[in-house]
């Protein structure tokens, strides 16, 4: 034993090692002192535009470093739960239903106009639960169609109901958030009123939807299966289709395109919030404020095929300037949803 100890590290070695370790541990602290770091949690699909557009602009303006952790909403929620009391993320970008869970767990710090001035310039319905979170971008719902099979793009929501598309239409289930507005669309078409008014008469919507049945190939709950059918030409149209997903498939080379029907499109929300007790609170509010600003949203609208939540953000290229964007009355949806799902099962069955 004694022999072995002699061969081990001496006092000087230990000292050297200690000094080295201290150096390694201190180095980032020194760096941090020079440039503050802001950790933002979001979806993996946000990573390209956060790192190429948002982070460079923000880092330049606020002399800091943005570290983006791209996973998914539920993972971010779990990270916040695990680190409660010692948060390392300052900002989260998550889906609205997950935001509701985070609010219930007391993980978010409300946004105020004093801390986030751009909050005042958002479209109606973009600020939720007294400022617990806000929508920065809104992917929209249009009609996705197969370009090879359909030479003339659809122009109206009424096209989905045309008899010549028998068995070639795919629609989302109302279990999926993007499926609900179809009830409002049908109601508006039936009554000949604007889409906005359709939200108030689900009953008329269901009656009109029954006439869509001969045209249905299927009703999807899994988006990839639906796009698979569209890309293969088995389905001619998916409506309503999420702009973010459809344009991602289009960019990947799928023979599909997305149109905004003349009656207008529905907005779907993407949320942003400040983590309660997170580090760098001032930078966190500044980051949220930047994402809610019109100039930055204008840069993001194209790559994400989304609408900006700021009133001053211009519509992304390819969309008509006079496009009508309809905000969904989510409180009404939350109250009625399970009733609609059960009604849908009966009315839309084969």
């Amino acid at each position: 034993m004694a022999q072995q100890i002699k061969g081990g590290p001496g006092r000087r070695d230990v000292l050297k090692l200690g000094l080295g370790a201290a150096g390694v541990l201190m180095a980032p602290a020194v760096l941090r002192a020079q440039t503050a770091e802001l950790v933002v949690g979001g979806a993996a699909s946000h990573k390209p535009w956060v790192e190429s557009i948002v982070a460079p602009a923000f880092e330049k303006k606020y002399k800091c470093k943005v570290l983006f952790e791209g996973t998914k909403s539920l993972v971010n929620l779990e990270k916040m739960q695990k680190n409660k009391g010692a948060q390392y993320m300052s900002v989260v970008q998550m889906d609205d239903p997950v935001m509701i869970l985070a609010v219930k767990e007391g993980l978010l710090e409300p946004l105020t106009v004093a801390k986030v001035p751009n909050l005042a310039d958002l479209v109606a319905g973009a600020v939720h639960m007294d400022g617990m979170w806000a929508n920065y971008l809104q992917p929209w719902l249009g009609i996705a169609y197969n370009k090879t099979e359909m030479k003339t793009p659809p122009a109206s929501w009424a096209d989905l109901f045309e008899a010549k598309y028998k068995g070639r239409i795919v629609i989302p289930s109302p279990q999926n958030t993007e499926g609900l507005p179809l009830i409002f669309i049908a109601a508006a078409l039936a009554a000949g009123v604007p889409l906005e008014a359709g939200q108030k008469d689900a009953e008329a919507g269901f009656r009109k939807l029954a006439t869509l049945k001969p045209n249905l190939l299927t009703i999807y709950t899994q988006m990839p299966q639906a796009y698979n059918l569209l890309e293969q030409g088995e389905a001619l149209m998916i409506g309503p289709a999420m702009s973010s997903h459809a344009s991602e498939r289009k960019a990947a080379g799928a023979p599909i395109d997305l149109v905004a029907p003349k009656e207008g499109v529905f907005a779907m929300p993407s949320g942003i919030a400040v983590v309660k007790g997170g580090p760098q609170a001032d930078l966190a509010y500044a980051y949220v404020n930047e994402l809610l600003s019109a100039p930055l949203q204008a840069q993001l609208a194209g790559p994400t095929s989304s609408l900006g939540a700021n009133k001053a953000t211009p519509k992304p290229a390819g969309l008509p300037a006079d496009l009508k964007v309809i905000q969904i009355d989510w409180a009404n949806v939350a109250a009625e949803r399970s009733k609609w799902v059960s009604r849908w099962d009966r009315d839309m069955a084969l």
Partner: peptide, 24 residues
């Protein structure tokens, strides 16, 4: 059935799944 016929054709098994998973 969930893959070959979809949501529009409910059987006892798919309805059981939906009742627990989606309709709570």
């Amino acid at each position: 059935p969930s893959l070959l016929i979809g949501d529009r054709f409910q059987t006892l098994a798919t309805l059981t799944g939906r009742s627990f998973l989606f309709m709570r």
